[in-house]
């Protein structure tokens, strides 16, 4: 799980162009949206693409996104649970 979390941090920084952010600055349990990283609705859509492209997981209902993308940890948990299904 921790390995996946670290990998995800790198991927998030890359696909969302968070140039000034270092992986260690992202708290795995802190909310991704709202305060902090300053992510917005386009970033949320881009994270959906990331799950599909890198992990083969398709989110059918975008409303599920809120829970899945709450934090890096919740993303990692979702991936672990759904990968290969």
């Amino acid at each position: 799980m921790e390995e996946l979390i670290e990998r995800l941090k790198g991927e998030i920084i890359e696909v969302l162009n968070l140039e000034d952010v270092e992986p260690e600055e992202i708290d795995a349990d802190a909310p991704l949206f709202g305060e902090g990283l300053g992510l917005d609705s386009i970033d949320a859509l881009e994270l959906i693409v990331l799950l599909e492209k890198n992990y083969g997981i398709k989110i059918e209902d975008p409303k599920d996104g809120k829970k899945i993308f709450f934090s890096v940890r919740s993303m990692a948990e979702y991936i672990t649970e759904h990968k290969g299904k």
Binding site: V15, L16, N17, I42, D43, L45, E46, V49, E52, K53
Partner: peptide, 9 residues
């Protein structure tokens, strides 16, 4: 086929 919203915008 992975259309990127961040590019499309």
């Amino acid at each position: 086929y992975y259309p990127s919203p961040a590019l499309f915008v």
